[in-house]
Design a binder for these strands. Sequence first.
DNA 1: TATTGTTATACTCTATAACTATA
DNA 2: TATAGTTATAGAGTATAACAATA
Lengths: 154, 154
Amino acid sequence: MHNAVMDTREKEGQESADGLIVAVEHLVRHVRRSSLAGGLSHTAASALGRLHREGPQRLTDLARDEGVSQPNMTQLVNRMERDGLARRVADARDGRGVRVEVTDQGLAVVRQRRAERAEALGRLIDSLSEPERRAVETALPALARAVQDQARGA
Amino acid sequence: MHNAVMDTREKEGQESADGLIVAVEHLVRHVRRSSLAGGLSHTAASALGRLHREGPQRLTDLARDEGVSQPNMTQLVNRMERDGLARRVADARDGRGVRVEVTDQGLAVVRQRRAERAEALGRLIDSLSEPERRAVETALPALARAVQDQARGA
DNA sequence: TATTGTTATACTCTATAACTATA
DNA sequence: TATAGTTATAGAGTATAACAATA
């Protein structure tokens, strides 16, 4: 029995993923919908969250890390600046560059949004059985780690 | 120890969610990025997937179920029709309505896209330990079920 | 010459308001 | 009058190409 399992080990993830991907799609949609409150778009929230976690950053670096084009990030920063969520400051060391910072207002919105998402996930988790809850607390961090490992490898 | 745990049981989901939401955000982003291939937008893929699962539907029903406005769905169906992924057919029972169907080409694209997402998730799962894998196989369906229960309640 | 950022342009996706046609 | 759908309009988010300014 164990040998058979080990022999097909490489295919296992693939096979179970076929069924699991539907579950992930439902979860993805739910989380995305729960976080649109606060008037903050997904894109803006993601960029602001990064600026919050990692501090002020070059526009180019922010574009690269967020996986969007440089013109896209220029426009996103324009919108965030207009909405009082972020600001541009000149880069003292490089006359070509600008550094993007979160404003206090932007910070407050980021926190509110994260709380909303956490609350939505918390409601989900509360409705689970105790073993399922433990499984979630193992599975989610493990998957997040796998995502980061894969990002590094790729 | 167990008593203390049980006493704070109601708050547990909320507290762990604060940390888990970061994991979910990483997973959400990863899954979304892995599925943009095939030239199919997230919106179109979601609508096509539903039409595939549930069969031809009224445009209004599709808009409601997908959680978008009716004009939005009109335009989305326009784009999908133009791209050969779906078609409008007159509703025999109601002269006002149209039914939206997936074309064979649309079906092929939906299948390809789902396979891509499943492969991406499969790669993630393959990099986990055996206990983590089992946790994922418990956690994801449980969360998906919780999402659906919540959608019904709300 | 290479890099940083912006501007120009175009397309998808989204919403609300106004409209047409049918029930 | 109410419902199904489209059209009009506007704004966010995305990309590539062309450009300006600095290194």
